[in-house]
Design a protein around this nucleic acid. Structure first.
Lengths: 123, 123
DNA sequence: AGAACTTATATGCACACGCATTGAATGTCT
DNA sequence: AGACATTCAATGCGTGTGCATATAAGTTCT
């Protein structure tokens, strides 16, 4: 395989590395914690926020997910009891999402799983 | 946001860059050529092969896709007339996939689309 | 040759995704 | 205040994905 465009070479490297890590991360999180990579990302962002609380709208910007996918991720997390929805009193269109105790606990465990995978592939 | 683990920092960068490029690439290929990113990747690998011809099994290794997803991508390309399936006479389990003239032509056009997107984001 | 195993593709199924739309609340402009 | 536009979240829909399985062909071992 000749190198052709270095641009394509870069893209292939990016794609390869992403695919490898993403697939394994997804498998590990699913197997050990019943979480999608996206679910974990939502939880992670939420916990990074003030008071483990954020509006969905604010999460979307950080998430590499569409608004609808983010909304559904929150719904999944809520169904598992990791997160709670609450109306936002200052703007009743908005929805505040808060991590529950179980959510915070699971996040800690899942974080270890994540680090193990990253260690293995990005170290 | 404190930096915490540099490992996580790396992963976030990888994820961000991938998401940006992948989404835009997908949109552009779909809009201009009715191709998924995966479809294009299959076509691309096929054309890189000897005689624009390869067995599905051999494609799978390069593709960042599962066997089933690869099989379906080939099916899509065939439905669009970009590719042809043919039995492999030396091993009748195998299926040879060959790019048609239209497939080769479309690949050239799509390649320009790809390069434009990559240029914009990876240059 | 025949049975047991392996390999190459296709397919049923459940699920996460993005796009488009809906519904409700807010904002703006006259 | 009232009409129109905008914003936030949820949902219907179509589609691509991986996993498990099915099917068919090749391989190995006795």
């Amino acid at each position: 395989m000749k190198t052709e465009e270095p641009l394509i070479e870069s893209w292939r490297n990016l794609l390869s590395q992403y695919s490898l890590v993403a697939h394994e991360l997804d498998r590990a999180l699913q197997a050990e914690h019943c979480l999608t990579m996206s679910d974990y990302e939502v939880l992670d962002r939420l916990i990074a926020a003030d008071g483990c609380k954020a509006r969905i709208h604010d999460l979307v910007g950080d998430l590499h997910l569409s608004q609808s996918a983010s909304s559904r991720a929150v719904a999944r997390l809520e169904k598992c009891g990791l997160v709670q929805r609450a109306m936002c009193d200052t703007d009743r269109r908005g929805v505040f999402v808060t991590a529950t105790d179980r959510g915070r606990a699971l996040h800690l465990e899942a974080r270890r799983t994540q680090l193990a995978v990253l260690q293995k592939h990005l170290a």
